[in-house]
């Protein structure tokens, strides 16, 4: 999963608020909530950052956490996004 991008034709709306972040899909009015890190990753995906760049940024953000643990979490999160049809 080197290239990540928001699913085409989905017309997704990402909202970042004071306390919350969520993705809204108008076609089915579904809301997916993201925590701070989820929002951080989503913003990077929207900016068309590559997988390696996102992983690197997370490792910089959490220098005390082993890279393979962060990678595992990131992969799982991206899998969740893909399962929900939000990225391709």
């Amino acid at each position: 999963m080197k290239k990540l991008r928001v699913k085409k034709g989905k017309d997704l709306i990402f909202r970042k608020e004071e306390e919350d972040a969520f993705i809204f899909t108008p076609e089915d009015a579904n809301i997916r909530t993201l925590n701070e890190n989820g929002a951080f990753i989503w913003e990077m995906i929207e900016k068309k950052e590559r997988y390696d760049e996102i992983l690197k940024s997370l490792c910089l953000k959490y220098p005390k956490v082993a890279k393979n643990r962060i990678k595992k979490d990131l992969d799982r999160f991206l899998g969740e996004l893909k399962k929900r049809g939000l990225i391709e």
């Binding site: 579904n30 909530t33 993201l34 989820g38 996004l81």
Partner: peptide
């Protein structure tokens, strides 16, 4: 979904 860091959580509203 809960990861090791439990920091990327994504949830669906019921």
């Amino acid at each position: 979904m809960r990861g090791v860091l439990d920091r990327f959580f994504i949830g669906d509203f019921k």
